[in-house]
Nucleic acid binder design. Structure first.
Lengths: 215, 215
DNA sequence: GGATGTGAATGCATTCACAGCA
DNA sequence: TGCTGTGAATGCATTCACATCC
C-alpha cells in the first residue's frame, strides 16, 4: 500500500473532485475520458490530473485515456467510499438538523445512525427518522453500530468535551463544525469546517477585488 | 496596500484561525500575547505565526508580544470583517434553512438580508425572520441592499444557473455549498464547501489509520 | 497519432538562524 | 533577556519535457 505520508493533502482533495466529476460524466454516458478532458471540466491541467492519479497507481490506457467506470471504482476504493460508513451526529441544533436531512451524505455511502445532544430536554424528540439521545447513550450506540465517525455541531465551548467523549466511545474520525480548534488523541483523525471562516476568506478576497481598500 | 498575489492562501486561512483564537484570549482577559503563546493554542510554531502576520505589516512589540485588542482590530481590518457584510441566500432547503438560523455568521458581521428559492411554491413562506422570495426578485434585492455576497445551497444541477443569476445581479462573491464545480466571471470570487467531500477526506485518512487496507 | 506516466526543473511555502529592538 | 521581524536555506507541490505504450 502506498505510503500516505508522501502524498500531498491537496492531491487527495482533488481526488474527491475527480470522483465527483467522473460520476457526472458517467451519468451522461461517457465511457472513456482523457486526463485533458477531466482537467478541462475542473479548470486544471492534464498533467496535474495524471500526477495526482500516479500517486496511487496506473489506471490509464495510453492512447485511450481512462475508463470512467473503472476509474470511479478505483477512486472510491482509494478514498474509502467503496463501502458504507456509519456516522453519529453530536449536536442537534440548526446545523445538526440540516446535516441529518442532507441527502448528499447518503448517496456517498455515509449513514447517520445516531443523533445525540447534551441538552437532556431534547432527548426523545424526533430528528428526521432518528430519535435524539442523551450523551450518556453515545458509547453504547458506537459500540453497537460500529460507527467510526462523528460529526460535531455543538457550540464552541462544548466542542472539546464532546470530542473527548466521542474519542472515548471508540470513534476514530471527527468532522468538527464547531468554530473552535479541538485536539484529539493520535489515533483519532480530526477535520474542521468553520462556516463563518469560509465567508471571512471570501471577504478578504473581495476587499482586493473591489478596490475599496481605504487603508 | 500589500500585493495580494504574493500572499499564500494558507496564510490567509490561518489569519482567520488567529483571529478566532485571539477573541477567545480576549474574553479571558489576556491583554498581551506572544507569537509562541498564540502558536501553542493552535498547534503551530511561533515562527509561522510571525511570518504570517509579517505579510501584512508589523504588529508586534519586541520583548513584549502582541497587544490582543490591537491585533484583533488589525486582523479584522485585513480580513474585511471590521465592517458588516450583507449576504443573500439562494436555496432554502435543509441546508439553506440552517444557514439562515446559524448565529455564527451574525457575530462575525455577516447579515443575511434575503432568502431566495427557484421553487415558486416556497415563495412567500417564512424562513426565520425572512420571507422566501422567488428568483425573479434577486436582482432587485441585491441592488437595494447592496449585498455583495451570495451563499448558494441548491441542488448540484441548478448551481451553475443560480451562480450566473447571482453574478448578473451584481454579487461579487459566492460561497457555494452545492456539490459541483461552478465557474464565475473574473470579477466574481467563488469558494466551495462540499460537506460530503469533507467526510470523504476523513475516510481516506481513516483507512490508513485503521490499517484495514486489504489492498 | 494520441494518449499515459514520470524524472528533472521550477516555483512556492515553511523552517532555520540570527539581526534588531524594548 | 525576551521577543519580534526577516534574509537564507530547506522541503514540498506543481509544471515542464519527454520516454513509453496502444
Amino acid at each position: 500500500m502506498t505510503d500516505i505520508g508522501s502524498i500531498p493533502k491537496a492531491a487527495v482533495f482533488r481526488l474527491s473532485l475527480y470522483l465527483r466529476e467522473l460520476v457526472k460524466f458517467q451519468k451522461t454516458g461517457v465511457k472513456t475520458l482523457s486526463s485533458a478532458g477531466l482537467a478541462a471540466a475542473l479548470g486544471f491541467t492534464d498533467v496535474r490530473v495524471r500526477k495526482d492519479l500516479a500517486y496511487f497507481g496506473q489506471f490509464g490506457y495510453p492512447g485511450v485515456g481512462y475508463k470512467v467506470d473503472e476509474l470511479i471504482g478505483e477512486l472510491k476504493h482509494i478514498l474509502g467510499t467503496d463501502r458504507t460508513w456509519d456516522v453519529v451526529l453530536i449536536g442537534c441544533g440548526n446545523l445538526g438538523s440540516a446535516l441529518v436531512a442532507y441527502k448528499g451524505f447518503r448517496t456517498q455511502g455515509f449513514n447517520i445512525v445516531g443523533a445525540f445532544d447534551a441538552d437532556a430536554k431534547k432527548a426523545g424528540k424526533a430528528l428526521g427518522e432518528l430519535t435524539i439521545q442523551p450523551m450518556t447513550k453515545l458509547a453504547e450506540t458506537v459500540a453497537r453500530t460500529g460507527a467510526r465517525i462523528a460529526m460535531i455541531s455543538v457550540p464552541a465551548d462544548q466542542a472539546q468535551a464532546v470530542a473527548d467523549q466521542a474519542a472515548g466511545a471508540g470513534v476514530r474520525g471527527i468532522l468538527n463544525f464547531a468554530p473552535t480548534t479541538i485536539t484529539t488523541p493520535a489515533h483519532v483523525v480530526e477535520n474542521s469546517v468553520d462556516l463563518a471562516i469560509r465567508l471571512e476568506q471570501l471577504t478578504f478576497q473581495l476587499r482586493f477585488l473591489m478596490q475599496d481598500s481605504e487603508d
